[in-house]
Amino acid sequence: MADRGFPDQHTTTTVTSTNTTVQTNIRFDASYVRTLPGMLKVGQMVVDILGFICIIASNWSHSSRGSWFNTVAMGGFWFTGIMLALYLFHIVEKLYRIPWLKIEFIFCTLWVLFYLIAASLAAAIGGAIEAFAAAAFFGFVGMILYGFDAYIKFKAIKGGEIAQGERVVIKSTSTAASPAY
């Protein structure tokens, strides 16, 4: 029987183990394009190039607004294209120690801001120049795509995921009670 003055004693132990599984060989895997991040990258590249073409097709493409929009569109196109290639060939998985998700999160967040500015500037004169109105539409769609991608990256970072490959976190809890004297 336990003494009324002393409560039963027990110890709780929590053990967390993390297992990261990656394949370090470079290989082409087209199935990445069918995943949500892959579809987002393809969509971002399409919107980037369509917005760029709209501005270039106008007679005012060399204005400061047009140049800024094209800078944003081509910066997004090339960064997203390079990242898509790195994922398709599993180079991101090979270099899994680089914080790819954080890099992409920062880029996507910046591009939301840049596209907001570029599309707003294009929309401001879009009534007079139809090509700028179309570019503004693609700019706002690009802003939404990059924003959704940033949200996905943020959730992945908070969840402790890696960009490509698998990370399994196993938590086990054990409780040991000492006998009452």
Results as ranks from 00 to 15, higher is better:
Ser67Trp: 06
Met74Val: 13
His10Phe: 12
Thr18Val: 11
Ile56Cys: 04
Phe79Met: 07
Tyr32Arg: 06
Ala163Ile: 05
Ala135Glu: 02
Lys94Gln: 06
Ile144Val: 14
Ala118Cys: 02
Asn19Val: 12
Phe89Lys: 00
Thr109Ile: 06
Ser61Leu: 07
Leu36Thr: 15
Ala2Gly: 05
Val72Glu: 01
Ser31Thr: 12
Phe138Pro: 02
Glu130Thr: 14
Tyr96Arg: 05
Ala133Thr: 10
Asn70Ala: 09
Phe89Asp: 00
Ile55Glu: 00
Ala180Val: 09
Val168Tyr: 13
Arg4Val: 08
Cys54Pro: 01
Thr173Lys: 13
Phe105Gln: 15
Gly43Arg: 02
Gly5Ser: 11
Val168Met: 14
Gly159Phe: 14
Val46Thr: 07
Ile157Lys: 05
Arg27Asn: 10
Leu36Met: 12
Phe89Asn: 03
Ser178Trp: 13
His10Gln: 12
Thr24Val: 04
Gly139Ile: 08
Gly43Phe: 01
Thr71His: 03
Ala136Asp: 06
Phe107Met: 07
Met143Arg: 02
Ala133Arg: 13
Asp48Phe: 04
Leu95Thr: 05
Leu113Tyr: 09
Asp48Trp: 01
Glu93Phe: 01
Ile117His: 08
Ser58Met: 05
Phe114Ile: 00
Thr109Pro: 01
Met74Ala: 12
Phe79Thr: 06
Gly165Leu: 01
Leu84Asn: 02
Ser61Gly: 12
Ala30Ser: 13
Thr21Asp: 13
Ser31Asn: 10
Ser31Ala: 11
Gln23His: 10
Ala156Pro: 08
Val22Thr: 07
Ser58Trp: 06
Ala118Phe: 01
Lys94Pro: 00
Ala150Val: 07
Ala118Asp: 02
Trp68Pro: 00
Phe154Gln: 14
Val168Lys: 14
Lys94Leu: 07
Val22Arg: 00
Tyr32Ser: 08
Tyr32Glu: 09
Leu113Phe: 13
Gly51Asn: 04
Ser63His: 04
Leu113Lys: 05
Gly139Cys: 07
Ala135Asn: 02
Phe105Glu: 15
Trp60His: 15
Phe114Pro: 00
Gly51Ile: 02
Thr18Gln: 11
Asp149Ala: 11
Thr109Leu: 11
Val47Lys: 01
Val15Gln: 13
Ile170Thr: 15
Gly5Tyr: 10
Ala73Asp: 08
Thr18Tyr: 08
Ser17Ala: 11
Pro179Ile: 15
Ala128Phe: 12
Val141Leu: 10
Ala123Thr: 06
Thr173Glu: 12
Trp60Phe: 15
Pro37Lys: 03
Met39Cys: 03
Ile103Leu: 12
Val46Gly: 02
Val169Gln: 10
Trp100Arg: 00
Asp149Gly: 08
Ala85Gln: 01
Val42Leu: 06
Ala124Gly: 07
Thr13Gln: 11
Pro99Gly: 09
Cys108Phe: 07
Phe138Ala: 07
Arg167Leu: 05
Met83Gly: 05
Ala119Gly: 01
Arg4Ser: 07
Ala128Ser: 13
Trp78Ser: 11
Ser120Phe: 03
Gly147Lys: 03
Arg65Pro: 01
Ala136Trp: 10
Val92Phe: 02
Phe114Glu: 00
His90Ile: 00
Arg167Tyr: 00
Ser178Phe: 14
Arg34Thr: 15
Thr109Glu: 08
Ile106Gly: 04
His90Arg: 00
Ile82His: 02
Thr13Trp: 07
Val33Pro: 00
Met39Trp: 03
Gly127Leu: 13
